[in-house]
Design a protein around this nucleic acid. Structure first.
Length: 453
RNA sequence: GUGGAUGUAGCUCAGUUGGUUAGAGCACUAGAUUGUGGUUCUAGGGGUCGCCGGUUCAAAUCCGGUCUUCCACCCCA
C-alpha cells in the first residue's frame, strides 16, 4: 500500500449509519424551525476576512481559518519591512478570504446586503458547517455543523420566549434532558458598574461560573489571584452565592444592582421573559445563571446557553440578542436575537446515552438477483415496476455467484430477495425470499407489489 | 496558546531485562455448498512496528526530534 491517506486534524468522515443518525437530528431541528415560521437561507463557506475579523473578540480572530490569495500571493510582500510590522500586516496582504466561524455574522452581512428584498421582522434558519482553528478534544471539532435560528428586526421579548420554546420542543423531541440557562448582558454591566472595576468583569464571571466545579473557596482564591481586593469580593458575595429559584434570584439582583440603569433594564427584561414562560408549558428546566457571560462580544441583551444533563460536553446550544451587529455592515438600529444548535455535540450526547431510535435509516426493501444477461434484462422491467410503485429496490449489477449476491443483501440488511431465473421467466411466477425467516414463496407480480408496499 | 498521554494488519489490541521469519480476535478472499445469506469448519492474502535521526554486533523495544490522535486548561457548538 502506498502512503496512508488521512484527513485534516479535527475533521471527520461520516459513514452511512452516522449520516442517517445525523439526518435524524437535522430533520428534527428543521421541522421545529419550520413549525415556528422560519425560512431557510444559505451563505458561502468563505467570506471576506474584513467581514469576519473583529467580530468575535481577540480569541476569535486567532481561530479563524484564512485562505491564501490565488496566484502569486507573495508578490506584494517584502519580508523585511512587512514582517517588522507584525503578522497581521502580512496576513492582510496574502489572505483576504476566510472560512466562516459561525452563522450569525454572515447572516448579519446577508441582512445588510439584502435589506431591500427582506420583509422585517425576518425569521430565518440556516444549517451549515463552520470552521474554527481550535485544538480538537472531546466534543470539539475544527469543522462542525451549526443550526441557527434568528429573528432580526424586532425588539420584542416574545422572540426570546419563542427561542426558548423551540429549544424545549427540539430537545423534548430528541428525548434529551437539558437545562436552559439564561442571563442578560445588561445585568453583567450593572454588576460591573456597582463594583467599580468593570475591566475585571470577565474574570469575575468566569470565576463564578466554576463554583459547581471547584467550590466556593477556590472561587474566592481565583478572584484574589486576579487582583480583586477583599472589599470588592465581599461586595460580590450576594452575586456569587445567588441561589434559590428564579424569582428569588431576580429579587436579589434587583436589590444589588437595581439602582443602575443597565442593571434595572436587564432585570426587567429577564423578569418579563420568566413571567411569560411561567404561563406556558415548558418541559425543560429554565434557570437564571448570573455567571453566564459567553465570549462572543456582539451580544447586548439576553444570553442563552443549553447544557445536556448527564453528559459533560460543554453547551449543546447557545445564543443571545445582538442590538447592532448589522451596524458594522451599514445597517444601523436593527436588533436581532437567535440561538445556534451544535449538531455534532447533540450527536455525541445522543450516542453516549444510546438515545437514537432503532430504525432511523431507510434502505432497500428488495434486491433482485442477477443470474445473467437475459435474466438481468428481464429483471430490469420488474425492477422498474417495483420502483415506480414506491418500493425501494435494486438489481445486483454483476453476474456473480449467488452466494456473493446473497451475502451482499444480508450485509446491507435488505429484507427481501427476488429470484428470477429460467424457471421464473418461463412461468412469470417469481420467487421471493424473506431473509429474516428464510422462507420462500412463489408470487405473481401483483401479489408481490401488494406484499412489499 | 499551556500541560499530559498515545501511535504495531482495514478495525480493536498483545508483543517479556533489546536477540531467529512481529502475533491474536474481528474483517476480507477462496473452498466445504454448480439456484440460497447469517452459524460452523478448512485454507489464504495482508505490516516501512507513525516519520526522521542517534546508541548498539543486534531496536517494535533505549534516546532525541517531528507529526498524529486523545485528554485537561483557556475558550466555545
Amino acid at each position: 500500500m502506498a502512503q496512508k491517506p488521512s484527513i485534516p486534524k479535527g475533521t471527520r468522515d461520516f459513514s452511512p449509519t452516522e449520516m442517517s443518525r445525523r439526518n435524524y437530528i437535522f430533520d428534527t431541528i428543521k421541522s421545529v424551525f419550520q413549525n415556528f415560521g422560519y425560512l431557510p437561507i444559505e451563505t458561502p463557506a468563505m467570506e471576506n476576512l474584513s467581514t469576519l475579523m473583529g467580530k468575535y473578540g481577540e480569541e476569535g480572530d486567532r481561530l479563524l481559518f484564512k485562505i491564501l490569495n490565488s496566484g502569486d500571493y507573495l508578490k506584494n510582500v517584502t519580508l523585511g519591512e512587512d514582517a517588522a510590522q507584525g503578522l497581521n500586516k502580512i496576513t492582510r496582504s496574502i489572505a483576504e478570504k476566510g472560512l466562516r466561524y459561525d452563522l450569525t455574522v454572515p447572516f448579519a452581512r446577508y441582512v445588510a446586503q439584502h435589506r431591500n428584498e427582506i420583509t422585517f421582522p425576518f425569521k430565518r434558519y440556516q444549517v451549515q458547517p463552520v470552521w474554527r482553528a481550535d485544538r480538537p478534544q472531546k466534543g470539539r471539532y475544527r469543522e462542525f455543523f451549526q443550526c441557527d435560528v434568528d429573528v432580526i428586526g424586532s425588539n420584542s421579548l416574545l422572540n426570546e420566549v419563542e427561542l426558548i420554546r423551540m429549544i424545549d420542543d427540539i430537545f423534548c423531541e430528541l428525548k434529551m434532558g437539558v437545562v436552559i440557562k439564561i442571563n442578560n448582558r445588561k445585568i453583567l454591566s450593572g454588576i460591573a458598574e456597582v463594583i467599580a472595576v468593570p475591566e475585571k468583569l470577565t474574570d469575575i464571571t468566569t470565576a463564578i461560573d466554576k463554583i459547581d466545579k471547584i467550590g466556593l473557596d477556590k472561587v474566592y482564591e481565583e478572584l484574589r489571584s486576579k487582583g480583586l481586593t477583599d472589599e470588592t469580593i465581599q461586595m460580590l458575595e450576594p452575586i456569587i452565592n445567588l441561589g434559590g429559584d428564579n424569582q428569588k434570584k431576580l429579587n436579589c439582583l434587583r436589590e444589588f444592582i437595581g439602582t443602575t440603569a443597565d442593571g434595572s433594564q436587564g432585570i426587567t427584561e429577564l423578569q418579563t421573559v420568566i413571567d411569560l414562560l411561567n404561563g406556558l408549558d415548558i418541559r425543560s428546566e429554565v434557570e437564571i445563571d448570573q455567571s453566564l457571560a459567553r465570549g462572543l462580544n456582539y451580544y447586548t441583551g439576553a444570553i442563552i446557553e443549553v447544557k445536556a444533563k448527564k453528559v459533560g460536553i460543554g453547551s449543546v446550544c447557545g445564543g443571545g440578542r445582538y442590538d447592532n451587529l448589522t451596524g458594522v455592515f451599514g445597517l444601523p438600529d436593527v436588533s436581532g436575537v437567535g440561538v445556534s444548535f451544535g449538531a455534532d455535540r447533540i450527536y455525541d450526547v445522543l450516542n453516549e446515552l444510546d438515545l437514537f431510535p432503532e430504525q432511523v435509516h431507510k434502505c432497500t426493501k428488495v434486491m433482485l438477483v442477477n443470474f445473467g444477461g437475459k435474466e438481468a434484462a428481464f429483471s430490469l422491467n420488474i425492477l422498474q415496476q417495483l420502483q415506480r410503485s414506491g418500493i425501494p429496490a435494486e438489481l445486483y449489477p454483476d453476474t456473480v455467484k449467488m452466494k456473493k449476491q446473497m451475502k451482499y443483501a444480508d450485509q446491507k440488511a435488505i429484507r427481501f430477495v427476488l429470484l428470477i431465473g429460467d424457471e421464473e421467466m418461463k412461468t412469470g411466477v417469481l420467487t421471493l425470499k424473506d431473509m429474516e425467516s428464510g422462507e420462500q414463496h412463489k408470487l405473481e407480480m401483483e401479489q408481490l407489489t401488494g406484499l412489499l408496499k
